[in-house]
Simulated assay, not measured.
Amino acid sequence: MQQVRAVVAREKDAPVTVETITVPDPGPGEALVRVQACGVCHTDLHYRQGGINDDFPFLLGHEAAGVVEAVGDGVEGLAPGDFVVLNWRAVCGQCRACLRGQPWYCFATHNAAQPMTLADGTPLSPALGIGAFAEKTLVHAGQCTKVDPDASPAAVGLLGCGVMAGIGAALNTGRVGRGMNVAVIGCGGVGSAAVAGSRLAGASRVIAVDVDDRKLEWAKGLGATHTVNGAQTDAVEAIRELTGGFGADVVIEAVGRPETYRQAFYARDLAGTVVLVGVPTPDMSFPDIPLLDVFGRGGSLKSSWYGDCLPSRDFPLLVDLYRQGRLDLDAFVSERIALDDVEAAFDRMHRGDVLRSVVIL
């Protein structure tokens, strides 16, 4: 067992604390990872606010990259010294999704069996089964995806959640292709990643929509060809005007609100696709859209889970594109901070001042 510093949320809406926790040695199928960098994601804030569940205390952090220090019995294809990006989709290979050839939907993903604990022995609930706002963390070996060791940990660690969710919403869920028109509603970290993914796929127009001009500038830097400030103009009409009056082939909703979902629905072309990747709160309901419009407009209404990614397939590919200069993951890193700065980073994220703060360890 090892004692390490980590960021803990002890109770709902209380400021996080940096504490010494106990990390067990890896057991069968597990890996001990020395964390090098971990992004500050909205999901971590949701955990702290009690918006995920009430299994306090939480060990926060999940968008991480680091180096494997030790592995447990039965682990194959992973060894100490390997540089990895952590993921929360360690596929089981045996559930009904895996058996029908869709492991990116795996319904029985793996996590470490042993708990990490506070100094008094209280078990911690690791965010998304990872808990990487810590000097070291214990995960299932399947949560470790080996990538190019020369890549920047601060940049590629973001593939662990938000950036992968956005890129995957475009590439995997939305199936954006060459020459398509794409609109992205909401241009925070996930939405800006969807913009980058759409450009990577060869979309001819990528229309970024937000109510914050700062976020629209970030989206332009990541490949948006047009921007629309939804606080100043009708976003649906603007998207139609930019697409010859038809609407976008794919509209990616990265906010997770009924009103922006309704915009996405009506901003798409006939037989177009809506992708919901923004995460709603439990009190939100599907917007009041006439069923005849759902039928008459055709196409697809999809939800994107983690960008429908398969980490073993997608992470190495995207890291290679990053290393080739074709995917600017560095642009998502707004600032580099220490473990003690996570609470302040939550405030900056909530205000929309950053794409991602990244903890460097």
Rank of each mutant, 00 (worst) to 15 (best):
V7Y: 02
A9R: 05
T17W: 08
V18W: 00
A31M: 05
L32K: 05
R34S: 15
V35G: 03
Q36V: 11
A37S: 13
V40L: 00
T43Y: 04
D44H: 05
L45C: 10
L45W: 04
I52P: 03
N53M: 10
D55R: 09
L59N: 04
L60V: 13
G61W: 06
A65K: 04
G66R: 02
G77M: 08
V85C: 07
L86P: 02
W88E: 12
A97D: 15
C98L: 08
R100V: 15
T109D: 15
T117Q: 14
T122P: 04
G129T: 07
I130T: 10
A134S: 15
A134W: 01
E135M: 09
T137L: 09
P149A: 10
V156C: 04
C161F: 06
A165W: 05
G168M: 01
A170N: 07
A170K: 04
A170M: 08
L171A: 11
V176H: 04
V176I: 07
G177S: 14
G177C: 10
M180Y: 02
G191D: 05
G191P: 09
R199T: 11
R214D: 09
K215T: 06
L216E: 02
E217L: 13
K220D: 09
T225C: 10
E237F: 12
G244S: 10
D249G: 07
D249A: 11
P258T: 08
E259M: 13
E259H: 15
R262N: 12
Q263Y: 09
A264W: 00
G272T: 05
G272F: 04
G278S: 07
P280Q: 07
T281M: 14
P287N: 02
L292D: 13
G296I: 09
G299M: 06
S304H: 07
W305M: 14
C309W: 05
R313L: 15
D314Y: 00
D314G: 03
L317C: 12
L317Y: 14
L317E: 14
D320I: 08
G325N: 08
G325H: 10
L329S: 02
E335V: 08
D341E: 14
E343P: 08
